[in-house]
Amino acid sequence: MAILKPNRINRLFSFNHFAVIALVLFVGSLGLLLGAVVSYLDYRAFPAIFRNPDIMFALRLSLWTASVSAVLAVMVAVPVGYVLSRFKFPGRSLFDAVVDIPIVLPPVVMGLCLLVFFRTPPGQAIEGAGFRFVYRQAGIVLAQFFTITPYAIRTVKAAFDHLDPRVEMVARTLGYTPGRVFWRVTLPMVRNSIIAGGVIAWAVAIGLFGPMMVLVGTTRQRTEVLATSIYLELSVGRVQTALAIALLMIVIAMGALTLFKKFGGGGFLS
């Protein structure tokens, strides 16, 4: 039987070469896109946004709403991720799939769902009880929360999946109740992933645009966040201000991603 030898072309274009070229091309393309923003920007516009009270309001609103929604997302992600990772129950796959819906759905649809919900009797009852979300800052937190929580759940669940359950079992034999094992052993072992989940959720929240526009609109000094600021500035032709805000958001996103990687975040969609 003839033995097939790799020919010169095969050696030159092995899968490894292809993979490296794909990486370089993709990262290069992203670099070009980000570079385009930087090169087109008039550098006087960047410091100017820090003197603009409207943009500063949007920055502060973006930071605090994203922080509140990220904390809420983590508080939900830990128990939900734990249940999906550890418990076997009928319909678990269905629950697992439903949790992911906001990841695959266009964010604007989530905003639309929330807007319509507050026109239904249960939604009206909530608003009637004094919890107002539509066209309010609380609505920003709500829209962010529903959109970003799946990212936190994925990150935390992946960490629970990779834990060695024997450590918890031994802790049980050493006299600890399941609750104390969770607080003293399980939770500290996934601490970094919880932080990573919070950071990625926060970064996604900062950049959300669609659900904000639908649920709370973009009113200056009331419900304007950084992502909607770009839209407002572009709509009145202030391209340089829009680019400066975009650069600020790139810096925030890169900082958040660096933190995410530092805390061992990785396959949050695994």
């Binding site: 060695d164 450590v167 072992m189």
Partner: peptide, 8 residues
């Protein structure tokens, strides 16, 4: 246990 399961 066989894999020792020390708390990391």
């Amino acid at each position: 246990p066989q894999d020792l399961a020390l708390i990391p």
